[in-house]
Amino acid sequence: MSEIQKTAQPPGNEPPAIENEFVWAIRPFLKRCSIIFSCWTTPSLEVDTFTRDDGVSARAFALFLIAALTFAVRGDNGDNGGANPTAVFTAFAGGIAIILSAVLNILSRTYKIRERLVISAYASTIIVMFFFVIFQEILTLTLPFLLYNSFFWYGDVIIPAVLGGIATFALLLMKSAWWDEKPIGRRGFRHGSILTVGSTIIVIIIALLSSRIFHRLVELVSKLKLHGD
């Protein structure tokens, strides 16, 4: 009886069950994922249905995914002879985040692009990156001569990137038509193609950029940001 009294808590103050802790912990992650997923559609004409804070956190999460995928796209594990692999890794991630964030912010301010379109661009880039890695890996191991000899020696980047862009575009149209149940039409087709072509170009740049130039760019952008503040 006394044991029960000692451990009993007033109603409403019970420690949450482990399952609830888990749900509580992953809820923000799921929310960000769902915002990114809902924004990735064509044509994207709706007004933003989420708060500004949610939009910012979804963008930050998308940016984190892009930074992580950068290493996969570049076939780089951060231990390619550098003195401090973790530092190289972090510098790359930071660089990608700064450059992409700055470019998209400038574009959205200049052309008054809605938040959901910016998130949609991030989502497209993530998916093209994902497909790029898959196609490059498969083609390297199955058709290496094709990758090596084509497109004026840039086939190893251009072929998987273009295939990734086409796969992303097809997926975007299917998602918009069947999941979002939207009439795609000419406008949807145009929006979708601009989105995927832009993302494909970003992925090609990420894959082609030499490490030296990339570091220079990161330094330059960091200085610009500091002066801007």
């Binding site: 570049r74 076939g75 780089d76 390619n80 490059q136 890996e137 390297t140 191991l141 290496p144 990758l147 090596y148 020696w153 190893d156 980047v157 894959a207 082609l208 030499s210 490490s211």
Partner: peptide, 12 residues
């Protein structure tokens, strides 16, 4: 089956 681009070119 993967490598950074510079080395990938050499290996391919």
């Amino acid at each position: 089956g993967y490598a950074p681009r510079k080395e990938l070119r050499v290996l391919l």
